[in-house]
Design a protein around this nucleic acid. Sequence first.
DNA 1: GCCGCAGGTCAACAACTGTTTACATGAGGG
DNA 2: CCCTCATGTAAACAGTTGTTGACCTGCGGC
Lengths: 187, 187
Amino acid sequence: MALAKDAQATRDRLVAAARAEFSRQGFERTTVREIAAAAGVNPALINRYFGGKERLFAEAVAIEIDFPDLSRTPRGDIGRALIRHFFARWDGGDGDDVLRVLIGTAATNDEGAARIRDILSGQIEPMVARATGSDRARERACLIATQILGLAYVRYVLALPDTDLPPETVSEAVGETIQRYLFAPLP
Amino acid sequence: MALAKDAQATRDRLVAAARAEFSRQGFERTTVREIAAAAGVNPALINRYFGGKERLFAEAVAIEIDFPDLSRTPRGDIGRALIRHFFARWDGGDGDDVLRVLIGTAATNDEGAARIRDILSGQIEPMVARATGSDRARERACLIATQILGLAYVRYVLALPDTDLPPETVSEAVGETIQRYLFAPLP
DNA sequence: GCCGCAGGTCAACAACTGTTTACATGAGGG
DNA sequence: CCCTCATGTAAACAGTTGTTGACCTGCGGC
């Protein structure tokens, strides 16, 4: 049963509200009072439960990318498959995906930038190494990051309409780019 | 001769200082007092000359991309040429290039995002139309924007070291991507 | 020499920030 | 039943923010 006083539920609602607000306005613009109001709780609880705005932010952007299983995907289709996966995940959009939060906040928040670097090293690079078996996985992962983050930036930060970047065009054109960054010989 | 009281010089120093500070810290984190201190002037002058922080920002991020003349570049080399141009421009780095300011601030500042969209419509898209003569210039311009902004984001916001993204790898791999976004058939 | 006024200073303002402190409340074990 | 302590509240704090209005300052024309 739902208790009137439930610490865990309050924490969860704060994290959810924080994600939404940070995503909409970035770290600096978002105030703890806004987050608390959106969560329907008292602002002081942010300090009680998380120890401050910074620590709540860190909690709100903890993320696992959970790549699709590519082991059965034909080599030639991996690029397209990756793009489709990201597309589905982002545009399925409950609107507060953490990666979107990060892209927006990393720009002015070192903690956020460090998080993205962690994802690059800890999740994208291993995925590339696994999928390609090639050396230079680091370089390839960075190239892929430029394209995927750029796509996310244009779509969600600049908020270009679908007509400017039709999903099928993106899947095809960007998918092939990823494919090349994965497998094409590097200079 | 340099006057002790020179309104134009003061304005210029304020804009320059604003660019540097906004670039380093983004719009929200930067205070008018910091900008004034960096410019060596009184904070009140920001309001006198620009009418507020927002308006100073708008002035600081006014930008002309000034593309290279591509009319004599062989069709097959345009992608590479563009990337080299941006690279030279960004990394030549007096450290306060306006496009870098914009990328960092647009994330949480609608005015900034609108500026980038203006550049896309007013400068990148016409350049694409001119260079390719193709229809679908808009789509191609957006695709190019994803790659170029993503590259800038990874290099300057995430601040990955040169060893992760060696310039020659970028020129080649990303150059070819731009080339494809310019000329390859779209689905 | 003096005066007007563009150019620059100074201190204060009101609003808002994250955080802390002291206090209320009510569910659940004894 | 009542006492306790996790949970939640309210108010205040100290600092910072962008902005403003009243006030100097000194160059250029008379």
